[in-house]
Amino acid sequence: MPRGKRVALVGGVGGGNTGNEVSLDVVRDLLRAARDDLRFCVVTPMPVETTTRGLAHPGEPVLPLRAPRSTAGPRTVGAVLRRALAEGRHTCRVVHEVGGMRALVVCGTGVLDDFEEPPWGMPWSLLLWAAVARVRRRPFILLSVGAGPIGGRVSGRLFRATAALATEVTYRDADSLRTMVDLGSVRADARVTCDLAFGREVAPGPAAAPGPGMRVAVAVMDWGGWSGDDEEARGQYLATLTEAVVGVLDRGHRVVLLVGQPVDVGPAHEVRRSVLSRRPDADLRVADIGAFDDVVDEILGADLVVATRFHLVVAALVSARPVISIGYAPKNRALLTRVGLAHVDRPAEEVTAAWILEQVDAVARDGARYRGSDEVIEGWRRLVRDEVAALATRIG
């Protein structure tokens, strides 16, 4: 197949983030269903891990989103020159690769924020690919992406430039569109759609049965504030979850701990150890999660989900489960508001164990108030499919 038939799927895959990975899978699967003449490559900041995890299908090249970098050692003149040389080589490779592509599609997720990302990370890397695509006259599509919060001024400018260079821009929620407009990115053609993960087919499972003795899935995140290195925030978050899990167990409910990506495993086991130090006889395990579908399988066996990561909230909604959100960013509330559940979210830096337990008790009394609108969620499933099918017709 000629290289010109290749579509680049751009995403932060390889690190085990189940939301990022399912978003890329949805776009690939739907484009393939609409156009059997297209072939794909994956562009990611973690090419080695992406290959190792088998996230690229057979025959699909895996390309590095950014130049290899090292933070080790002092910033000597030699180190700066080596960095500049690496960036130059990478840019030349990007120019060459983009010339052989039919289009580049950034596959959703919160790519336009600076959560644990410096300006020279995702912000700069996206801008480089967008700029090269413009020079090589290839479509660069921001598809159902999330934007904000953006704390750094430099990152904000880089993201604004990327949106300006994009051929098409759709956002997964109105808050994302508003964030970019506030940054000065005003495009008459920008539209609000929904998160791509809603396009994933989910086999129906048993209905949730909230009430006495219900099974509660508590999803733990490796959260240390927006910068990622706030140890006080991390400690308070884990202590709050520990206290909440103890309270849930003392109410006679069952608990399983979930994770959304590998970095969450350590914190989840930390919560487990803390709970078992207080309730040694508790039956409490950390679920073995490898992909979004694994998360859904676990959730389908639960009656309530308590989650921090955005895509675990999404997984609860597509699984028709009551959900309580401990949001690490406003995107959780933005999503839940659209399905009639603004009342189930509390920011991670403000949440208390008492509030979580109040919500658990409320779910046990009336779980329907904590379930998203089936009509809206089904509409989103159709919307994702229609959006990607329409995109397939615009790829030359």
Rank of each mutant, 00 (worst) to 15 (best):
G213N: 14
V94M: 11
V218P: 12
L65R: 07
V351S: 02
G4I: 04
A392T: 05
V135A: 09
V186N: 13
S319N: 00
V271K: 06
A161N: 14
A268P: 09
Q236D: 14
G228E: 10
V10Y: 14
R157D: 12
E358H: 12
T162R: 09
H311D: 06
A390K: 05
T240R: 12
L126E: 00
S227I: 02
R82M: 01
V22T: 13
R134V: 14
V154P: 02
V351C: 07
S23P: 10
A133E: 01
W380G: 00
V48Q: 14
D195L: 11
D303R: 07
V344P: 12
E387Y: 00
A147L: 02
W129S: 03
L65Y: 08
R187E: 05
G199E: 05
P267G: 11
Y370E: 05
G151W: 09
I326W: 04
L300A: 07
A103N: 12
V323F: 12
G15Y: 08
L300Y: 00
D293H: 13
G78T: 01
A86P: 01
P322F: 00
G290Y: 04
V7G: 12
E378C: 09
V246L: 12
V186F: 10
E350Y: 07
V263M: 04
V13F: 09
D37R: 11
P149A: 04
R3D: 15
E387A: 00
F292E: 08
E49L: 02
L127Y: 14
E60L: 09
L312C: 10
F310C: 01
T76A: 09
A197L: 07
A307K: 03
S70T: 14
A368I: 01
F140C: 08
L158I: 02
S185A: 15
R254N: 01
A203S: 11
V286Q: 13
P212C: 06
V105Q: 04
A131G: 10
A8G: 15
S373V: 02
V305E: 09
D195C: 07
V22D: 08
L81W: 13
G224P: 03
D366H: 15
R136N: 11
T193Q: 15
E232C: 10
A329F: 05
